[in-house]
Design a protein around this nucleic acid. Structure first.
Lengths: 187, 187
DNA sequence: CGCCGAGTTGAACTGAATCAAGAAACGTGG
DNA sequence: CCACGTTTCTTGATTCAGTTCAACTCGGCG
């Protein structure tokens, strides 16, 4: 739990009271490779903090699995759309490795947001960071060649290439697995 | 100002005190077509609410202007990355039509976030909505043909096609102006 | 009236997808 | 610890959607 809070306080420091309240909510989960956190059609009612391991979010398109995000150590993970709106998720969340997670329910989080201004702030700041991440990825994705996308990945998030099957990386970049394989062989 | 608050309270209702404080901060601005709200290299220190008109955000890539978002009536508008991080913006913000805007500075907003939990919540909820929007657009953009992108635009945001020059729409969709022109002629 | 920006149309080119087959790596049970 | 089947990755040949470059049309505005 130590680690969880040191990461959280990287975003925004918390009072003892707020930490205590959070402590009562977060539950530790350990799952093994290939297990699912969420299947499409379900409503995502949990927010997770990923302490150790790797996770992917993917959806099905014409019989293919399109991975649209990865989660690694110290990432917050959820099916954002479903978690916020309460709609059934269109995506699946699956473990790429055995993982150690901390879980909190939407209900619990909502209560904490009511009770603690500082937790509302924490969440606001986390959103800012994640919005910027998504924006950067979006701007990057458009108007870049497959080779440039690969180079960006190599520079910015090389751990993805090391820990994730090629097919998942390819769909994440928006290119075919064959193309990614060919590009990689040039390096 | 009436209108501004009715829109804001669509996201989250506010107490009289919070509204009063906001009222003191928001300043009305009227600008005409083609004027700039922000140029690349500047730090964006203002958040705008767009009451009337149309705006685009674009950046330069290989001598081309890539429009990556549009703002219309009732949108919040800023150079998000720059506003949050304080880094110089890579993008420009330009009016596509004459606009009526309400402006608040980052400094002012920061103070309000400290004073009012409910404003912190308002902002948090606005972020959620905008994050979901961006996510949807991102998922849409990847793996769709030019024709599908056009059809989506027609269905979901036809006002963009009606109020924006074709070249800007094309770069927004991530396709060339010529391709967009050809596709449009098929309908 | 003639210029200028915006949009259209045509022809050639190309990056990446697709289809197809084979090689390597992986892990599971005998 | 090896054999077999499955999944993952590579390589080749072909095809195609969309880009690029270039010329042309159209409508407004000084």
């Amino acid at each position: 739990m130590h680690h969880l809070f040191s990461q959280i306080e990287n975003y925004h420091p918390l009072s003892a009271a707020a930490k205590e309240a959070l402590q009562d909510c977060f539950k530790k989960i350990t799952l093994s490779k290939n297990e699912s956190l969420l299947n499409e059609g379900q409503v995502c009612k949990q927010l997770y903090f990923l302490e150790k391991g790797a996770i992917r979010g993917f959806y099905n398109l014409d019989g293919k699995e399109i991975t649209h995000w990865f989660g690694f150590e110290n990432d917050f993970v959820t099916s954002f759309h479903s978690f916020i709106t309460g709609d059934p998720a269109v995506e699946n969340i699956q473990l790429l490795e055995g993982c150690v997670l901390w879980s909190i329910s939407k209900e619990q989080l909502t209560q904490l947001l009511d009770q603690f201004h500082e937790i509302e702030r924490l969440v606001r700041i986390v959103y800012e960071k994640y919005y910027i991440r998504l924006e950067e990825r979006f701007v990057n994705a458009q108007f870049k060649t497959a080779k440039e996308l690969y180079e960006n990945l190599l520079e910015q998030t090389p751990h993805i290439l090391e820990r994730v099957p090629l097919g998942a990386v390819a769909s994440y970049l928006g290119i075919s697995q064959e193309t990614l394989s060919r590009i990689r062989s040039q390096f």
